[in-house]
Nucleic acid binder design. Structure first.
Lengths: 182, 182
DNA sequence: TAGCCCATGTAAGGAGTTACATGATTAG
DNA sequence: CTAATCATGTAACTCCTTACATGGGCTA
């Protein structure tokens, strides 16, 4: 019974699945790329890597090579690879869409290289289903609150609605992209 | 020198500005409305309220009235009202847009009832400026990584781009809504 | 040889999570 | 009178934040 893996933990596992990386590499990725959700602070990354290692999900070893500085490169273990896959295979649920979409998008980003196109499309399936189920309840809520809300509150709410609507459109676009590549 | 106020703290202050509420009321708001970003757990709300009270930003008092259960109703103090205003007046910066838009939207939602339309429009101004400055760097990043990225990674990135593009459109729509109401 | 980037780490503290505890009031 | 709901709270734990510490190697 391994302890639960945090969102940051999965992000690290996913990146390591692509290539062995050091803590410093990972920090640079979070600092420089659009993965701004995750902190690049050493106080976050290094302890997280240690925890994954304690859980036997990754293994770090100091790079031996032409007189370089000590650099601990981490690789996923078989158990780590399996944990990542299980995470990527989880169908999208209400929580995933109602509470921040960035973790979901990270999952989607990793899905194809790790599990293959079919799994990515399955993620899109469940994403569309969840959004389709969520949108009406949001629209209802808006209709109910419209009268009592200040204008800027209503507009902020509508911005949320638009986010989900445009995500649905994106999902269909993503589907088409997968079809084209077959 | 008051200690910093957390995102949750501002959310509470903003809601209390509208009407005096109890911890339980606030939990229900977070649980039932679309403000799913914030937790409705008692272990989050009650300590946060106590902290705000320690900082003299809110004041709680037990409702006296027709034989009711004890209910501690909180109201913002003058200092609390000023802290909320200062938060709402902060112009949008890169961090605000690159790292989760929900807090930003909360600020916008409170802006009009607390500060008035002009302040809401100023927020839109700085939001549009930030997005306009951020988008090109994202597009560049995408162009650079396109080749080395798996398809689902590219698509996830594009979903982020679309989010910002549609936020720009929303901002113009929001502007128009304010003009109409003049 | 000074200064800068590479690279890893720790310590203290803040804030949220889960789970538990407690008790009052209302509905059936 | 029993269950559900209202209402507030605490304790233990985890995780992240900020700030500091350390030292190797490269470049001017």
């Amino acid at each position: 019974m391994s302890a639960p893996v945090s969102s940051l933990g999965y992000a690290l596992l996913g990146l390591l699945e692509g290539a062995p990386l050091s803590g410093y590499d990972l920090r640079r990725i979070f600092a420089q790329t659009a993965m701004k959700t995750y902190s690049d602070s050493p106080g976050a990354i290094y302890p997280a890597l240690k925890k994954l290692e304690r859980q036997a999900l990754v293994q770090g070893r100091v790079e031996k090579g032409s007189g370089l500085r000590r650099r601990r490169l981490y690789r996923p273990t078989p158990r780590g690879r399996e944990a990542l896959r299980a995470w990527l295979r989880r169908p999208v649920n209400r929580e995933d869409v109602s509470r921040g979409l960035q973790e979901l998008m990270l999952r989607f980003a990793f899905s194809e290289p790790v599990l293959g196109r079919a799994a990515s499309v399955r993620l899109l399936d469940s994403l569309e289903a969840e959004i389709a189920a969520y949108l009406p309840s949001l629209r209802e809520q808006l209709a109910g609150l419209k009268a009592s809300m200040p204008l800027s509150g209503r507009l902020a709410f509508e911005s949320g609605l638009r986010t989900y609507e445009s995500l649905l459109e994106w999902s269909r676009y993503a589907r088409a992209a997968f079809r084209k590549m077959r």
